[in-house]
């Protein structure tokens, strides 16, 4: 039986970029364990030699016709939903420290 610990839940939450409350962590540990138990049924199925299905379509690698310039979204429209913008770009926190400073 799968049993996720709160520490494992913490790790998954970091990978998933989610902040969780203590109550959520405890609840998800229990609920995800129950779902994973249910998924354990899959281990009993013989899938020897069976390829995985990622898509049901028989078409693969659809290429566009030679790229041609066309209309695109205006900058102002693209920025309309931005939580923070200086009018020309999205504003976000720095990803890396600036060593010159």
């Amino acid at each position: 039986m799968a049993h996720l610990t709160v520490e494992e839940v913490d790790h998954i939450a970091l990978l998933a970029r989610l902040s969780l409350t203590g109550e959520e962590k405890a609840r998800y540990a229990q609920q995800l364990s129950a779902v994973l138990d249910y998924a354990a049924e899959l281990a009993a199925i013989d899938v020897e030699g069976i390829p995985p299905t990622a898509t049901v379509l028989s078409v693969h690698n659809v290429m566009r016709a030679p790229d041609a310039a066309g209309d695109s979204i205006a900058r102002d429209d693209a920025l309309k939903n931005a939580p923070r913008s200086d009018g020309a770009s999205f504003e976000v926190q720095a990803t890396f420290d600036n060593k010159d400073e």
């Binding site: 998933a16 989610l18 609920q31 995800l32 976000v92």
Partner: peptide
């Protein structure tokens, strides 16, 4: 910022499914 945004913006079932899928 990512974590707080997503923690506050997503509801319970969405977080549960993201967690399950990430696992």
């Amino acid at each position: 910022t990512y974590r707080r945004t997503r923690g506050a913006g997503f509801g319970d079932e969405v977080k549960r499914r993201i967690m399950l899928g990430t696992y």
